[in-house]
């Protein structure tokens, strides 16, 4: 086994999604030269891309298919929440640069909270179903944030 693989594997061991963590990190060209902190940063980057993509998907593709003005407004709000999640992850990267790992954890938690807000917005409007695709994307962002939290725990130790 190469040294890089070992670092990735041992880093991912502390997370709840080992397989996903390993494959996500291995597919980034920066991983082979990264230390644990670097791997955390890469994973946060994966989260930022994911959240931004969801924000765009909701505001674009999904919104284009609906005519109902209430639903359109809800989608707009939801898209904004995913953009805010991406922004919280931007703050996480700043914290990582400063080696302020606890603040990094704090900001990851916040990033993870925003998808809940989107789900709640749907719940607040009677008769609106929470779209399956948003549910899937919510789970996906939660998984990435969970992995970041796991790596951060390792850095704090």
């Amino acid at each position: 086994k190469s040294n890089t693989t070992t670092i990735i594997e041992s880093t991912c061991k502390t997370t709840n999604y080992y397989k996903f963590c390993v494959s996500a990190l291995k597919s980034d060209p920066r991983s082979p030269t990264a230390d644990t902190k670097g791997l955390a940063s890469i994973m946060v980057g994966v989260g930022m891309t994911n959240a931004t993509s969801t924000a765009n998907y909701i505001a674009g593709n999904l919104s284009a298919t609906v005519k109902d003005t209430v639903l359109k407004k809800v989608l707009q709000d939801c898209s904004e929440k995913y953009a805010l999640a991406a922004d919280s992850l931007r703050l996480t990267i700043q914290d990582l640069d400063d080696e302020a790992y606890d603040y990094a954890s704090m900001h990851v938690l916040a990033a993870q909270d925003y998808p809940n807000v989107c789900r709640n917005i749907f719940r607040r409007v009677k008769g609106l179903a929470y779209p399956v695709e948003i549910r899937r994307r919510e789970a996906s962002l939660r998984r990435i944030c969970g992995v970041v939290s796991g790596i951060l725990d390792r850095l704090v130790e």
Binding site: Y103, A110, N116, V117
Partner: peptide, 11 residues
């Protein structure tokens, strides 16, 4: 009554 969380503002 209904609240949306944000990252901590001052730390």
């Amino acid at each position: 009554i209904n609240w949306d969380p944000h990252p901590p503002a001052i730390f």
